[in-house]
Nucleic acid binder design. Structure first.
Lengths: 163, 163
DNA sequence: AAAAACAGTTAATAATATTAACTATTTTAA
DNA sequence: TTAAAATAGTTAATATTATTAACTGTTTTT
């Protein structure tokens, strides 16, 4: 007998701890990546929402026609509206984002990228794509499709648990 | 034409954004779960390290024989040693953890669960396992094994990029 | 028309983590 | 074999990131 632990090997647990670890590594890499452009991770995530990045789970789940608003960002990021207000405040100061009042519902403020914001996102794209590719190198297209499917099924399961 | 985005569909990007989203959901669920026992997520993660949970990527990667120390925890959690010192301070106050000076190297302090800590981990285990199972329901054993393999390959890729 | 719900904001504060400077000990190498 | 460098841990000050609760203005419900 090599070693005995209080806790047994369990495939589910191994997967979930691995998702958590991968995400920690991913986040660190991403913070290093966007901080070179003076952004925090959360600010960057808001920018790609405004750029309607079709790879975002929030947009994969359902199509959005009108420009996104702070409320929806809070929902997609899993944080409070007050927090999003502050994140947007910074992006407004940086002139990366525009706030447009919704004529039909004057409580709402639609958010859009400025030209400067669009330019920034476009500039970052090539390096982003190549960085993402190297994080998944060695996986075939079929494996990647399966990987995405497993992640989505897991997300859906967790979202269903909240009820 | 339905809609055009600045950003194109890209399988790699979809996967990485999905990992990030799944992890946010997972973390929220876990915080709710452990806060019922008066723990933060980080405190809980330290406890399962001390319980030598064989599902932790840190232990899957390499076997550890001696009790873990703060330094190694900082490495596994991806945070600073100073942060771990504070986390352990709280766990010491709660009498969940013991600090034992290493006789061979007096700089080092080995960490162990107290009886109370062991009991807590054991008590949480059944609910933890059933919660984890429901997060991965609908996936076959083969799919789960593939899922874990993809996550590990992705983690390894990201760790290799740091050089 | 009144009450409730919704979107956003603000101010105060909680939580979580980092940096930099320090002690003590061990390892390296000149 | 000492002097310098590296390692483990801690502390204090502070940065960061986010939350809660109370508020305004607008729209929807009853």
């Amino acid at each position: 007998m090599i070693h005995s632990s209080m806790i047994k090997k369990n495939l589910d647990t191994s997967i979930l701890l691995s998702i958590y670890e991968t995400s920690v590594l991913l986040l660190k890499q991403n913070i290093a990546f966007v901080s070179k452009r003076g952004l925090t991770n959360q600010q960057w995530v808001i920018l790609i929402h405004l750029a309607k990045d079709p790879n975002l789970p929030y947009f994969i789940r359902e199509t959005h026609h009108k420009p996104i608003m702070a409320n929806e960002l809070a929902d997609s990021l899993g944080v409070t509206r007050a927090n999003v207000t502050n994140l947007i405040k910074t992006l407004l100061q940086k002139k990366l984002v525009l706030q447009i009042e919704d004529k039909e519902d004057r409580r709402k403020k639609r958010l859009k990228l400025t030209k400067k914001g669009e330019k920034l996102v476009q500039e970052i794209q090539p390096e982003r794509i190549s960085s993402n590719a190297s994080m998944l190198k060695g996986l075939s297209k079929k494996e990647k499709q399966e990987f995405l499917s497993y992640l989505q099924r897991c997300s859906n399961n967790i979202m269903d648990m909240k009820s």
